[in-house]
Computed example of a mutant assay.
Amino acid sequence: MLDATDHRILRQFQAAPDLPMADLADRAGVTPTTLARRLDKMRDAGVIRAVRTVINWPALGYTVEVSLRVTLDKTQPRAFDEFLSEARKVPEVIEAQTFLGQVDARLSVIARDMPHYQQVYRDKLLTLPHIADIEALMHVARVKFDETLPL
């Protein structure tokens, strides 16, 4: 399990993952060697999966984001697997989730503008297998987006 030092390291690492190791160690109150050893241990244990870059899609011209709530035809035995396999191939689908309940899946889709979204919707999304019903929810604003844990 993680101790108080590990939690302190994770708090600092979440806040500034691109900080030089010596500075990160100083902020966490440990030596650079201890920091490196503990980060390696947390990576090996799967606590830290990756350090990644978060891209500002609108800055690259992708100004439309839509959430699609999808209900699948569950009379088909492999409906979930086949739907998700094909959805993964659509570059504009940036996230896919599955649910238990009335809605089976949610796709988060980005597009440059509405004509681009309409083209993606007609040519790529409506052709995904086993769709029984689909509802589009246009994103207006992202009020909160935070993947950090309250450590």
Rank of each mutant, 00 (worst) to 15 (best):
D26I: 06
K41W: 05
G46A: 08
R106E: 11
F99E: 00
T71L: 08
D123H: 11
K74F: 11
P129A: 02
E82Y: 06
A36F: 13
V30Y: 03
V64R: 14
E65C: 12
L72H: 10
R52H: 13
M21P: 12
A87C: 05
K124Y: 10
T63Q: 13
L126H: 13
K124L: 13
E65W: 00
T63N: 14
A96M: 12
R122V: 04
I131C: 09
R106T: 09
A132W: 02
V51A: 13
D73W: 04
T53D: 11
F99Y: 08
A59T: 03
R49Y: 01
R49T: 14
T71Y: 06
E82C: 05
V66D: 01
D40T: 14
A96F: 06
Y62R: 00
A28K: 00
R78G: 09
H116R: 06
A50F: 02
R52D: 15
K89I: 09
P91E: 14
G61H: 03
E135M: 13
P77D: 06
H130D: 07
P115Q: 05
D104N: 12
D40P: 08
Q76I: 12
N56W: 04
A132C: 06
F80E: 14
T75K: 08
P91F: 00
L100A: 09
L72F: 05
P129W: 07
A132I: 01
